[in-house]
Design a protein around this nucleic acid. Sequence first.
DNA 1: CTGCTTATACTCGTCTACGAGTACTTCACA
DNA 2: TGTGAAGTACTCGTAGACGAGTATAAGCAG
Lengths: 234, 234
Amino acid sequence: MAKRRKVGNLLALTLLVQLHERPMYPYEMASVLRERGKDQAIKINWGSLYTVVQNLEKNGFIEAIEVVREGRQPERTTYRITEAGRAEVKDWLRELLGEPAREYSRFEAGLGDAGSLPPDEVAALLRQRLDLLDKENEENGATLATLVESEQVPRLFLIENEYYLAMRKAEAEWVRGLLAEFENGTFPGLGFWQTLHDAGGLDGSGNVPELPEGTQIPPALLDALEKRGEAERK
Amino acid sequence: MAKRRKVGNLLALTLLVQLHERPMYPYEMASVLRERGKDQAIKINWGSLYTVVQNLEKNGFIEAIEVVREGRQPERTTYRITEAGRAEVKDWLRELLGEPAREYSRFEAGLGDAGSLPPDEVAALLRQRLDLLDKENEENGATLATLVESEQVPRLFLIENEYYLAMRKAEAEWVRGLLAEFENGTFPGLGFWQTLHDAGGLDGSGNVPELPEGTQIPPALLDALEKRGEAERK
DNA sequence: CTGCTTATACTCGTCTACGAGTACTTCACA
DNA sequence: TGTGAAGTACTCGTAGACGAGTATAAGCAG
């Protein structure tokens, strides 16, 4: 599970899928991707594109079938997918769909260090985030609804958008909940957190006041955390 | 917003935050991180660690204060955070918490190309994913609940875990919903999708049958998709 | 028909991520 | 007291990511 791919960039998967349809040259693959709106779910990096295509060829997943030069433009090499390429797509999709993988988000990292800002500022930032999320979700939801209702785009072509929207909505709800706890003061430890910043603990002195007695992270917790870590690392 | 950081790796943020507490040498920073369970939210890469520390120093966010050699072990350089480092932490946290950023997940990419597998296999894979998600969520939920109930770990130190759990639960629910549509046949276009694969369209022939008349992606949709793309690119 | 913008189709170079390797130390245990 | 496993603390090499740059062509406005 989650074995190392010869070509790891997810752009490669989508390119291979493109090539099922017909042979193309690199720039063409990227254009078609963009036309179909797939660049919503996959980041197209023009720099990566050619590296990825090259690696796909090196590993026998695609092969060049034609090199054309039109006028004085640079050469265009057209590629087609190989049997090995088809097999790779299936195997890869089975992994991506069937096995949940740990992924690290920027917001999660930020939350982990949120204690470095005073609580009222964190609350303000979360408020801002929530407003932006709500706005974005409403827009995306409306667009998606229009497309689905038009019944001209098979829903199969839209599920990745549906998924993304669902996740962003869930994030908004979570933030809304946390924010409520902040604003009505039910989030435990708000006082201590504030004190820590009032004392200038993180500003300049370089010292963080000790946590109050009894609030230290107990060894039992460390064990639990470590066990969880080990389990994930397997 | 979302400006380019001098040191972009998120590991750098957590290291800087660590150094608020006291000066440390690189290996020590990573160990402390692990002890505190922060390696749940941030991937610690031993290879990246030293590159990141070096870059932090190069950009003036940390400075070396001592080089010690104990016995015949390699030298240990101890670093402390600078004023610029403190400022960077604050600025970075404001960005991470306040501004939602588009992130690309492996599952989303997989969904986008799910059409390359026959529908019954996709259903089976989603079933498998859902089972794994449910199991994982139950375990993580139990661990978290224990920690929160113990009241010895400030909740502030756990919010990133709460967030992660909430997201995984939301994913599970979304998958459950989609799966239901598959299994009771209410997902539109299942028949066509199956036919496409029965015809061997994606297996060997290299040709994909044309979409039925009227199901083509209409230009209006393309416009909409493109507009959405543009808006995101801004 | 001239100049401007936009699209096409890459190439190049740098910077970074990251795994794998290294070499020494400490501790258990037989 | 020898051996092996686990921990400590890095170093190194290389593949890959990615931005910025380049050069041509097509469209069109005046």
